[in-house]
């Protein structure tokens, strides 16, 4: 007797994972690089309003790749989670680990119980008093959490671009050097040729700056970004 509707659990999970991975790979990458005074986020994003990088709380930032409506929903949930926790306890009690766990449970539950997994990959980063206290958590579509250090790349060519960042990264980078490294990775060409030049106007850049009081998240753009990247004519080399 045949069982036409039987699909092995391995196959089911693999199909879902492939589906999610394909969705994520379509998006442009996001690069996170730790620098001397904090953590810098950069991605190629011509939109001024639809952000991939956002503030969650005083010391916590959020970056995502994948489907906008899905990660936007998770971002809002994260802001609500953090604000509610800070209001019930104290601002200092809100940390990235708790938020990463809440996201992991949500992603994991959706992956196993709903018909379609979330096509997103997230990073939750918390800037500490010094570089050793920084925390970066990377979350996958299936709810798995990785505690990463110093730098991370998400999106379609994550492994390839991650290698570029890993090669160029050193502890105690200045902000300008860190952003130049991130932008070089974002423009990395597959054929191994010259990195593609990306105009500052096409970039979405933000930092968690540990030297700022209370709210450490700050967007970097316009002339400040061009200045940091050391380009007067607006082209990154």
């Amino acid at each position: 007797m045949t069982m036409p509707f039987y699909v092995s659990p391995e196959q089911l999970m693999k199909d879902r994972a492939d589906y999610a991975r394909k969705g994520i790979a379509r998006g442009r990458s996001v690069v996170l690089v730790a620098y001397a005074d904090g953590i810098a986020f950069a991605t190629e994003n011509p939109s001024r309003a639809l952000h991939k990088i956002s503030e969650i709380y005083d010391r916590i930032g959020f970056a995502a790749v994948g489907k906008y409506n899905e990660f936007e929903n998770l971002r809002v949930a994260g802001v609500r989670y953090a604000d509610l926790k800070g209001y019930s306890y104290d601002r200092s009690d809100v940390n990235a680990r708790g938020l990463a766990n809440a996201y992991a449970q949500t992603l994991g539950t959706v992956f196993t119980t709903e018909s379609k997994p979330l096509e997103v990959e997230l990073v939750v980063a918390e800037v500490g008093a010094d570089a050793a206290a920084d925390q970066i958590y990377r979350l996958s579509y299936d709810g798995s959490v990785t505690d990463v250090h110093d730098h991370v790349v998400m999106g379609g060519r994550a492994d390839e671009l991650g290698a570029v960042v890993a090669e160029g990264w050193t502890p105690g980078l200045g902000l300008g050097d860190a952003l130049a490294l991130a932008v070089r990775a974002l423009g990395w060409s597959e054929e191994g040729g010259e990195p593609r030049a990306i105009a500052p106007a096409q970039l979405e850049v933000a930092v968690l700056d540990r030297t700022r009081p209370r709210r450490t998240f700050r967007r970097v753009g316009g002339t400040e970004l061009a200045g940091l990247l050391g380009t007067d004519d607006g082209e990154v080399r």
Binding site: N73, L74, V76, A77, R80, Y81, A102, Y103, Q105, T106, G108, T109, V110, T113
Partner: peptide
């Protein structure tokens, strides 16, 4: 959903 540890629906309601 009530038993799972995911964020409650109030958090993800747009």
């Amino acid at each position: 959903d009530e038993r799972s540890a995911r964020l409650p629906h109030a958090f993800t309601t747009p």
